[in-house]
Amino acid sequence: MANATSQFLRTANAAIQSSTPAGPSEADVLSQLASGKAADITSLANLMGAPPNIIEAIVGKLMSDRFLDSTADGFKLSEIGARAARYLKLTEF
């Protein structure tokens, strides 16, 4: 299990590293999720104009860091994720 998680994180990290600099950040994805306009990878990718595999990698990282909870349909903001989204909104300048 630990090996699988580690492998998943390595893949996610490699995908993020290989993304273009203009690609969305974890905070961008969180902000979009907090706006309620998208709740799955496909709609997020469409909304943010980024390849689905990149969004998938970022979502995977956010889930591993407890920012997202998995649901039957996909994922939703966890308590920590919701707090992060509120903080990001408060510190937006």
């Binding site: 974890e26 860091d65 920590i80 707090r83 992060a84 903080y87």
Partner: peptide
């Protein structure tokens, strides 16, 4: 943003 997100945990 990195610090803010870490603080949120």
């Amino acid at each position: 943003r990195e610090t803010v997100m870490a603080f949120a945990t």
